[in-house]
Design a binder for these strands. Structure first.
Length: 445
RNA sequence: GCCCCCUUCGUCUAAUGGUUAGGACGUCAGGUUUUCAACCUGAAAACAGGGGUUCAAUUCCCCUAGGGGGUACCA
């Protein structure tokens, strides 16, 4: 049996770091098993779901390099859910209830105050036919609850090992609202059955959901898939990742200019025993991937650490990997240029700065006028290569008596306008004699 | 309130009833670059606290503290 997994975000916002960790884990598992990775948009909540968010999610995944074999929208599958409801009603597992949510909330608070677990008391189950009819005739509409079997539900979790949840400690989940719309649990299970999902890989926040869902799979006559619940991400400060955490949206990380690969490696690798380190591609990560490497405690998502990884990744990337994107940003340098400057980049767009340094125009900074003038006079004729710099700078040293920092800083400042950067040995031939000469004279070039 | 999970260098983690508790990132130092960055080498740096069990506990048990998750007509 080939593995089939799914990533099922609800399009009620853009993807954030925590979401893509789930997506990545699913995708990598599918890759490793040569299985299918499906994208399922859980858009049954028509109030909060939007087309724009759905589009955004697809964009984010595409950017990260996660491709899906199939895209499914729950809003297209309402008929299937209705059919499942019919079957559950027929088998007596779904029962109507008439409490309002305000009423239920009040009841929960009372139970809590008395130190009791806030579990639904199944009052609706005790309603007689007459009482139900009266409620209906008074205009009350029913919502429908799934009647749980009071027993221990166990499964072998892919990451957490043997898990037990006592269904008796859970409320019977509402599956259908008064207005006929469905709550997460039902569509999710129906889809997993219809789509032949073999492994459900999701965040730890779903552990308790798994028990009712396993019962639902069984009530619908299907075998439950395998489950794996990964650790969640927390902020750099160690606090829970808020769903509104704008700074950690994938969109914002992309806008910051970070590499998709760095973001993916970071999100997939923190909280595992694999080192957070650059890899040439996502596939390099797949080979080493294993659920047993996931920690069971929350991992910190630290943007500062991600930026460091991004820089390290850039430093090892070959020219071919970035050539097209460099051209798109107007950087026409070739391999020589790339290899000279990549070690000084934090984000790829920094290459634009160094491209301007080698191709102009640029305002030089003249820190030592006398030295620069003498240096200009000593510039050898072209052609230049990477031996030119040391010969020339030695000549300048002899002529001026300047050495060390006093020699190199003024030259760097004049030639590049910056007080730091790639080796001048490599930069100088790229800048060329004409520009170097002009800049040493304080002219924009 | 109750239930579940977790706690090892600053961070992500490895291992183990007896170890100099290992690695990676960061930090610091040195080297290289007659400058800076990049790069190379090295160093400092941890078993949350308290009780047990044991010849021996970071490892097993209990308690406390802290963190995370759940307890929805959210997903």
């Amino acid at each position: 049996m080939t593995a089939r997994v799914r990533f099922a975000p609800s399009p009620t916002g853009r993807l954030h770091a925590g979401n893509i960790r789930t997506a990545l884990l699913n995708w990598m598992f599918a890759r490793k098993m040569s299985g299918d990775f499906l994208l399922r948009l859980d858009d049954t909540d028509s109030e909060r779901s939007t087309q724009a968010f759905a589009k955004g999610i697809e964009e984010d995944l595409f950017w990260l390099g996660l491709d899906w074999a199939q895209l499914v929208r729950q809003s297209d599958r309402i008929d299937r859910y209705a059919e499942a409801v019919k079957r559950l009603k027929a088998s007596g597992r779904l029962y109507p209830a008439y409490e309002t949510s305000e009423e239920l909330e009040l009841r929960r608070k009372r139970q809590l105050a008395r130190g009791k677990p806030p579990i639904y008391d199944r009052a609706a189950l005790k309603l007689t036919d007459e009482e139900r009819e009266r409620l209906e005739s008074e205009g009350h509409k029913a919502h429908w609850r799934f009647k749980l079997e009071s027993r221990d539900v166990a499964w072998d979790d892919l990451v957490r090992g043997r898990q037990h949840v006592d269904a008796a400690s859970l409320s019977d989940p509402v599956l259908v609202r008064e207005d006929g719309t469905y709550l997460y649990t039902l569509p999710s299970v129906v889809d997993d059955i219809d789509l032949g999902i073999t492994h459900v890989i999701r965040g730890e926040d779903h552990v308790a959901n798994t028990a009712p869902q396993i019962q639902l799979f069984e009530a619908l006559g299907a075998a439950a898939p395998a489950f794996g619940h990964h650790n969640l991400l927390v902020s750099a400060e160690g606090q829970a990742l808020s769903k509104r955490e704008r700074t950690l949206s994938i969109e914002s990380l992309r806008e910051e200019g970070l590499e998709a690969l760095a973001v993916a490696i970071y999100a997939a690798t923190i909280g595992t025993s694999d080192a957070v380190a650059p890899h040439a591609s996502l596939d390099d990560l797949v080979a080493a991937f294993d659920f047993s490497k996931l920690s069971r405690s929350p991992a910190r998502f630290d943007p500062a650490e991600l930026r460091l990884l991004n820089a390290k990744l850039l430093h090892m990337l070959p020219y071919d990997a970035v050539a097209e994107r460099l051209r798109e940003m107007g950087v026409e340098g070739n391999t020589d240029f790339w290899e000279a400057v990549r070690g000084n980049l934090n984000v790829l767009a920094d290459a634009k700065l160094w491209w301007r340094v080698v191709s102009g125009p640029l305002d030089p900074v003249i820190a030592d006028k006398d030295l620069c003038e003498k240096a200009a006079g000593l510039l050898p004729p072209e052609p230049w290569d990477d031996a030119t710099w040391s010969a020339w700078s030695a000549a300048v040293k002899d002529a001026t008596g300047a050495k060390g920092k006093a020699l190199f800083q003024p030259l760097r400042l004049a030639l590049t306008g910056e007080d730091h950067g790639p080796e001048l040995k490599l930069l100088l031939p790229l800048i060329g004699r004409a520009r170097a000469s002009a800049r040493l004279a304080g002219q924009t070039a």
